[in-house]
Every structure is written in structure tokens, then in C-alpha cells.
């Protein structure tokens, strides 16, 4: 029996590579599935959302111009660092989702493997989604996918780690910068993930993680003029989803609607293709 008094952690937001508290000074209580108190998580405000957008826009500039090889390496590095914290993630997921040892391990392993899968896509998806086009004339014409820009996502509520990783990875591997609102009731795996991100060479601002209530923060992100797309995967309220989509229309944002897929199955390219733009370039062919 270990009678040492443990050192507990203060759970904070992850914005621009730093760990601020909410500017509002608010927190909310997080409990495990047995309703046992786990922590006070930061309750992000609209201003935290605004700061995250600023950070993401800065992160986007560097990240989108990094080589695909580099982005792949960084994502793979995230998987490496996660692997080192495997036990912590298993404990976190267990507490958050109430899973047994085996199931919890399977979810964590899947999350790590998912990252590896997407990391490998970094320098391949353009070859699959892009092409040259045989136009009827003396022009060289090619099509390439480019990142959409700053994406705001609501992470799945139930799948606190695997679902989260499955939302983050396809969006950032293509060069986007992301603001993700973690699962409200089980944010701790997400917060542990931010500690991984901070030590895995992910440039500041590329992935920003907020904890709190999507209904409070997401509308500000959906209507924000410097956000290019929203991913509503984890929105559970139909009314909120509709409201966010209406807000998004103000600047013609790309919208991915709510979904509850089985996160354990290997995905297809659908998510990865959701937040890329197709650019087509023409040039004459002449001597």
C-alpha cells in the first residue's frame, strides 16, 4: 500500500503551444463514470475561443508551408510520445469512459495506431486526391489538394481519446490548424494529449484544445470570420448543430455534420478530404 500523498495536476487549456487557464477564471467539475470527482477542468470562454483562433491562424502559416514529409514525421512523433504514456492514457480513458482494462487498452492502442495511419498519409493523400487533367488544348493542367485553413471542431463526447485523435489527425495531417473542443464530460484524456502535443514537435498553434461547453464556445467559432471550416462530429444536440451550421453560412464555411461512427474501424479518406481545397493550375505548353 502506497501511503504517499500524490501531487495532483491543474488541468488547463492548450492554446498556441501554452497552457493557460481560462481567461474567465472559470472551472467545472469532472467526474468519472461512478461520479467520483476527478478534477476541475478549465471552462473556456468565447475569449479563449478567440485567442485560440488567433493562435491557430499563426500556426497555420507555418504548418501549411511545412513539407508533407515533415508533417508526417511530427504526427508520427505524437504517436511515439503517446506510446510512452500508454499506461497513463489507459488509466485516463478508463476513468473517463468506464471501460475495463482490456477495452481501455484497445482504445488507446487504436488511437496510437490511428495516428500512425494518418501520419503515413501526409505525403500520399495529394497523390490520391490530386491529378493532372488532360484538357483539350495546349495546356498543362494539374489539381492538388491544399489545406482549408483554420478548422474548429467539436470532439466526440463519448470516445474521449480515440474519437478525439480520429478528428484531430486527418485535419492536421493535411496542413490545417485546429481548435478542438474536447469532450465536455470526459476532457482528461484530451488534456493528457495536449501534454503529448507540447513535447512532440507540433508547432505552436497547430492544435489548440479547449475544454468546456460546446454550446457556449462553438457558436463564436462557427461565426468567426477567420475560421474556415467547422467539424460538428461531437455535437449531440440537433438544435445546436443547426445553429452552428447557420452561423457557419455567414462566411460560407465548410461544415462536417455530426456523426457517431464506430471509431474502432479503420477510416476511409472521407475525413481527410473534408478539409482540403482543390486547386487547379493551368499553364500553356509552348516553345
Amino acid at each position: 500500500m502506497n501511503d504517499r500523498v500524490e501531487v495532483r495536476k491543474t488541468y488547463k487549456l492548450f492554446i498556441g503551444g501554452a497552457f493557460p487557464r481560462s481567461e474567465s477564471g472559470r472551472t467545472y467539475e469532472v467526474h468519472d463514470t461512478d461520479d467520483k470527482f476527478l478534477a476541475n477542468a478549465a471552462k473556456a470562454s468565447r475569449k479563449d475561443g478567440r485567442d485560440a483562433v488567433l493562435a491557430a491562424r499563426k500556426g497555420f502559416a507555418a504548418w501549411s508551408s511545412a513539407t508533407a514529409y515533415n508533417r508526417g514525421q511530427v504526427l508520427y512523433r505524437v504517436a511515439e510520445v503517446m506510446e510512452g504514456r500508454r499506461d497513463q492514457f489507459i488509466t485516463d480513458v478508463q476513468a473517463a469512459e468506464g471501460l475495463g482494462d482490456k477495452k481501455s487498452a484497445r482504445v488507446v492502442d487504436s488511437a496510437i495506431d490511428r495516428l500512425v495511419w494518418y501520419a503515413g498519409w501526409a505525403d500520399k493523400y495529394a497523390q490520391v486526391l490530386g491529378n493532372t487533367n488532360p484538357v483539350a488544348g495546349p495546356y498543362f493542367n494539374f489539381t492538388i489538394p491544399e489545406p482549408t485553413g483554420v478548422v474548429a471542431a467539436v470532439a466526440p463526447q463519448d470516445s474521449s481519446l480515440l474519437g478525439l485523435v480520429s478528428v484531430i489527425a486527418p485535419t492536421v495531417v493535411t496542413g490545417n490548424a485546429l481548435i478542438v473542443i474536447a469532450s465536455t464530460k470526459c476532457p482528461i484524456p484530451a488534456i493528457t494529449l495536449t501534454e503529448v502535443l507540447a513535447t512532440a514537435d507540433v508547432p505552436a498553434g497547430v492544435i489548440n484544445v479547449l475544454t468546456g461547453d460546446p454550446a457556449e464556445i462553438a457558436p463564436w467559432l462557427a461565426s468567426h470570420g477567420d475560421v474556415n471550416a467547422i467539424d460538428l462530429t461531437g455535437v449531440t444536440s440537433q438544435d445546436l448543430a443547426k445553429q452552428l451550421e447557420i452561423e457557419a453560412a455567414g462566411t460560407v464555411k465548410r461544415v462536417r455534420r455530426p456523426a457517431q461512427p464506430n471509431w474502432l474501424t479503420t477510416p476511409d479518406l472521407g475525413r481527410l478530404a473534408s478539409f482540403v481545397e482543390t486547386k487547379t493550375v493551368w499553364h500553356p505548353i509552348g516553345a
Binding site: 484538357v135 495546356y139 489539381t143 481545397e277 486547386k279 493550375v281 493551368w282 499553364h283 500553356p284
Partner: peptide
Amino acid sequence: GVIWANTFNRFDPTS
């Protein structure tokens, strides 16, 4: 979405 280099307003069904 469409960049025309040394040309402009070209269209093609494959593009």
C-alpha cells in the same frame, strides 16, 4: 481554386 498562369478564363470538362 483555379489559377491561370500565362492564360486566363480557360475551361475544360476534365478540369
